[in-house]
Design a protein around this nucleic acid. Sequence first.
RNA 1: GGCUGAAUGGCAGAAUGGCUAUGCAGCGGUUUGCAAAACCGUCUAUGUCGGUUCAAUUCCGGCUUCAGCCUCCA
Length: 457
Amino acid sequence: MLNIYNTLTRKKQPLTPIKPNEVSIYVCGMTVYDYCHVGHARVMVVFDVAVRYLRYLGFKVNYISNITDIDDKIIQRANENGEDFNELTNRFIQAMLEDSDALGVIRPDTQPRATKFIPEIIAMIQDLLDNKHAYITDSGDVCYSVKSFANYGNLSGKKIEELRAGERVNIDESKENSLDFVLWKMAKLNEPSWDSPWGTGRPGWHIECSAMSTVCLGNHFDIHGGGMDLQFPHHENEIAQSEGATEEKFVNIWMHNGFVRINDEKMSKSLGNFFTVREVLKKYQPEVLRYFILTSHYRSPLNYSDADLNAAKQALTRLYTALRNLDTDNKSCPDDSYKQRFTAVMDDDFNSPEVLAILFELSHSINKARTDDLPLATQLASELKRLGGIVGLLQADPEIYLQGIEQDSASIEQLIVDRKTARQQRNWAEADRIRDELQQQGIVLEDNPSSTTWRKI
RNA sequence: GGCUGAAUGGCAGAAUGGCUAUGCAGCGGUUUGCAAAACCGUCUAUGUCGGUUCAAUUCCGGCUUCAGCCUCCA
């Protein structure tokens, strides 16, 4: 039985889907005005693993992750670039898809864009006005009235009267309560805008997610996810909007992933301490980044450093080395204890660090078996690849992972032959010179009793 | 100021009321011409002060420190 930590109750609880055998899940995606950084990568990978595991368990999963393609920052950036905001967002949506594909993330079933759901957003705002949860300000904006929703603050554990709105931001005098947030914002001159019953404008950020999740998954669905920072106010506001508009329960389980940090500080655009996914992928294979993300439990902080990325790289090399030269063609494994433990730890709120520990124990068993029980080694290797696949790891050909594809393998093979000749002549100086030469090229040799193999450092 | 959450060995990072993961790094050995890889063995830890208990790193409370949220953020 899969147990998931629910932010709403601060406890792990069994997943009991609304429809038997089907799971509906919505995850807040990116605002597309720049490249993805490692923090975005974490969200993508964490929920990719969750969805992969749900599917492995046999659930029919409907996974929705939205794209915010209209907001202040997008308008600002488009103006700075002197381009239409659609050109900007299309470009960064493309970049985001490239990054997530590289990381081995299976694309969500639907990735709705806010600008494609304007009529649905308007309809939901109208429902909120009808239900007396929203009002029109002097400036013409439509705002949500926080005080109209009794459960406001339940998700984040905050109380309206304890929140110090305006402490770090100017209070908008036209709002009834400073915590009230905009549902529909009047357009300024030359801003992108859409017609609405309240005048031309654009939707606020929070209402987009309420409208799109409801349209895609219905009024009430199973899991809603996103980064910790969205807990308040974004997800709090979503609950207020959706439950205010539909008068039904919105979401059963709220999942929030922890931050990526640098030197114990949150990685973020505003602090300027971020690495984009594509920067990292210039130095490391994408699977190393994915592995690195899985070394920490999804709710824990994840500190980013070169040392940790290098450790992840070493660790992944060890796993692929265990798979090397073994037929992993889906052989069944006589020992199902690994699989059972895998399921047990994944059932415990997706405990990926424990999964990695199991993968290492498997690779250890493979290495031991490979000299005197090759059939067993092969079966264990199949199991390793199979279990790794459930979390999106170890699906590459080990030779390609370890050697890369950009290497000039012919010249390397020639040098290995030359070295073999030198060794047969007991010319150790020449043999070591060749090995050093390859080392300079980033190639390390491994002599086996019968042959010599090579891999990238 | 309010609200969350965290503190584990040299580093990363799980778990657990009594047996102490896993990876990287270190040390000794097997192997190797020498290495590398692999294997065998091995060292290092639960922030602090109390409480509950036969037994606490684990449960409870105080303290300290750190991070996040209360503006936009994954």
